[in-house]
Design a protein around this nucleic acid. Structure first.
Lengths: 146, 146, 146, 146
DNA sequence: GTGGTCTAGACCACC
DNA sequence: GTGGTCTAGACCACC
C-alpha cells in the first residue's frame, strides 16, 4: 500500500499517515492481521523521520486499529471491538461536511450518492490500488475558492 | 446567533468561529444578506482578540460565504454561486468519516440515517437557536478521551 | 494453571508471566511447594521463547516467590519470609490507583468494596481456574482506547 | 509543585511526569484551573528535553486532566467528567497490589489502613508539600528483594 | 531487528 | 511567548 503525503497540507504528517492507514484498513487494502511496514522502513520510504512514523503508529495503536510488539513490528488488529458509533470527531466532521453540502445546494439524495461511492470503495478493487478512490476526487477548479 | 467556542478543542479559535458561522448559514440561523456583527463587537462578545475574528471573517470571505464593504461591515452573501460540488477538503473529511463508519461496522443505511438528522437540522428551528442541533449529539465536547 | 498472555498489552511478556504466577500464588491456584512447569515446557506451551520464561522465573526467584534447584526445577516457596509490608513498587502503584480513584470521585468505601472483590478472589475457587476473577473485570483487555 | 524524576526507574520519564502531575491534582497541590509550568520551563527545570515534557502534557491532555492552548500554556481542567470508575489499567494495578498483599500476609483491614493514608494525603497538607506522602514510603530495606 | 524513548535544536501556527 | 511538529541520530528493552 502506497502512503502519499501532501507536504503542503496543514494536516500534520503523522496524522496523514494515520489517516491513510485507516483508509487502507477500511477499504480492504490492509487486511486484519496484516503486517505493516516497520517504522524505519516506512520512514525511509516516505522520506520522513522515524519519530514521525512512530507517532502515527502510536496513534493507531491507541485508537485500537493496530498493535505493535517489539519482535514482530506492527500489525492490523484482527478484531476491533468498536461500538457501532461514530467518534465525536467524526460526527463533527460530518456535521461540517453536510452544512457545506446544504449551502452549495447539494440535495440529500445527491449527497447519499457521493457517500455510496466512498462506501463502495475497495469493494471490488482489492489489490487494484485506488481505482475507486481516484475518480472521486478530481479537483474542481471551477470553484470560487478552495 | 450565539457562537460558542470550545476552549478544550484543538481546533483553532478562528476555525471554530468560521465553522459556526457556516453552520449558521446552512441551517438558516443566518439568512442571505444578513448583517454579521463587526469584528470588534464579536471579538469583545466572545472574549477573544479581534485578530482572531478578523481571520475567521477573511476565511469566510475567501471561501465565498460572506462579503464585506467598508461602510456596512460583513454580510452573508445573497447568491453563492457554488457549483453543487463539495470542496476538496469536505470530500476528504467525508472519506475519513465513512472509512471510520465502515470499520466500526456502521451500515450504509444506518449512516444515512445519521446524515438525515444533520440535513434536517434547522429546518423548523429557524430562529430558535440550536434546538435541532442539540438533540443530535450529546455534545459535551469537553468529555475527556472519547 | 493456565497462563494467558495479552498480545495487545504493552506489558512485556516476561512481566505478564511473572504477574500471572504471583496472582496464582495469591489466590491459591498455586500452592506452597507446588512444582512449576519447566522453563522449556512453559515456553513451548505458551509459544514464546524460553529466554522469556527464564526471565520471568529469574524475577520470581529474585523476589522470593519461587526457588529452583537443579534436580527438580522450580517450585513455589513454602515459607516466604516477608515482613508484612508492601514492596516499594506496590506502594507506588497503590498510590497511583488511589490518586486516580480520588480524581474520578470514587469514595473510600466504594474503593474498599472494589478491593474486597480482589481480596476474596480465589477464596472458594481454588482449583477452579479463574472462576472468581472473570467476574470482577469485564476483562476484554483487547478493548481499544479505554 | 516539585516534580522529581527517578532516573533509574524503568518507567519512562514522560510517564513519571504524568504520574506526578496526576498525583498533584488528586491531593490538591494542583487546583482546578491552575496554570502548569510551560513545557520549556519545566523541561529546563527538570533537565530534560522539552519533547519529553510535551509528551507528558499530551498524555495528560488526552486523558482529560489538563488542557492546553497556544496562548496561555497548560492548565488543570476545571471539570473532569469521569464516570466514577477506575480505568482498566488502574484495576490491573490494584489486582497486582492486592495479590502481593495477600502473599505477604497483609490482612484486609491492614491493607485498608494503608489505603486510608493515601486517601487522606493532601487533605490538611495543602501547601505543606508532601508531608503525608513521605511518611508512607520509607523504603524498607529488610525486604528479601526489592 | 523491532518498536520505544530521549535529546538538542529548528521552525511553525496562534496570539 | 506558547504549545505542536519535525528531524537526525542515539541508546535501550525485548527477542
Amino acid at each position: 500500500m502506497i502512503i502519499a503525503i501532501n507536504e503542503y497540507s496543514d494536516v500534520p504528517i503523522y496524522q496523514q499517515i494515520r489517516n491513510q492507514i485507516v483508509l487502507g484498513i477500511s477499504d480492504g487494502r490492509l487486511s486484519p492481521g496484516e503486517q505493516l511496514p516497520t517504522v524505519r522502513a516506512l520512514a525511509q520510504e516516505m522520506g520522513v523521520s522515524s519519530m514521525t512514523v512512530n507517532k502515527a503508529y502510536q496513534m493507531l495503536k491507541q485508537e485500537g486499529y493496530i498493535f505493535t510488539d517489539r519482535r514482530n513490528g506492527a500489525r492490523v488488529r484482527e478484531e476491533m471491538n468498536f461500538n457501532r458509533e461514530l467518534s465525536l470527531e467524526a460526527k463533527e466532521m460530518l456535521e461540517r461536511v453536510i452544512s457545506e453540502a446544504k449551502i452549495r445546494g447539494i440535495e440529500q439524495e445527491e449527497f447519499f450518492e457521493i457517500c455510496r461511492n466512498y462506501f463502495d470503495a475497495g469493494k471490488e478493487a482489492v489489490g487494484q490500488e485506488t481505482a475507486g478512490k481516484r475518480d472521486l476526487e478530481k479537483k474542481d477548479a471551477s470553484d470560487p475558492a478552495e
